[in-house]
Amino acid sequence: MTLHATAPAPAVEPAAAAPAVRFNAVHKSFGTLEVLKGISFAVGRGEVVCLIGRSGSGKSTALRCINGLERITTGSIDVCGHVVSPDGRADLHAVRKRVGIVFQSYNLFPHLTVEQNITLAPRRVKKTAPAEARAIAADVLAKVGLSDKRDSYPEQLSGGQQQRVAIARALAMQPEVMLFDEVTSALDPELTGEVLKVMEDLARGGMTMVLVTHEMAFASRVADKIIFMHQGRVHEAGPRDMLSRPETPELRQFVGTGL
């Protein structure tokens, strides 16, 4: 690398090249129960990474460590140029402004309308002006196909619609990375499709995504990388066609049972 007299701000270029998220030997214990036993992987910018594995293998925990909902025990996670470490919570706010998350149980705020759910964080956290926040809301609602539900309350929506609002709410913060934790698991099969469609559109649009999912067909179609977790470790990782030629007996069994 050559040194220019007017060097660009050093953080910019390496950060753009660096992965959006990188786990560096992350351990996480709940009391004496070690749930993550040193996991390392990277998520490049614009990549879609699917975490799969048996229930209890630590997928949700790994995801929740990225934005500090769980505190890691040792190791570190690089997130969009910031560091999540076991002690330092200093970067957490910066990380959360850049990372959106969607949960299995939607977690919409029941006392607020769809629009208010979406504009709350831009207005409070980014101090966006109300009119501009409403414009953002209209934009993200159009993306998830719910423009007509702007003034509804969550309880007036179906599960699939609530989940799409939850995605819109996260998108309104214009995140660099989106996390999804089994977002279709609580939905009836006929409602699952509409949510997966929104996620697929997002992926095609270049969003960096880390998702925990049991939708193997979806993973095989959309993922750039699949990570199979087993007993708190990354057991097998590979490209999207990895599921059709599993290498370890554990993954073979997991794929075989379908779950």
């Binding site: 934005n67 959360r96 990372v99 998350i101 949960f103 029941p110 956290v125 996260a170």
Partner: peptide, 10 residues
């Protein structure tokens, strides 16, 4: 609800 709000940076 609280986790969602925390995650949004509130």
């Amino acid at each position: 609800q609280i986790e969602a709000a925390e995650s949004l940076g509130l």
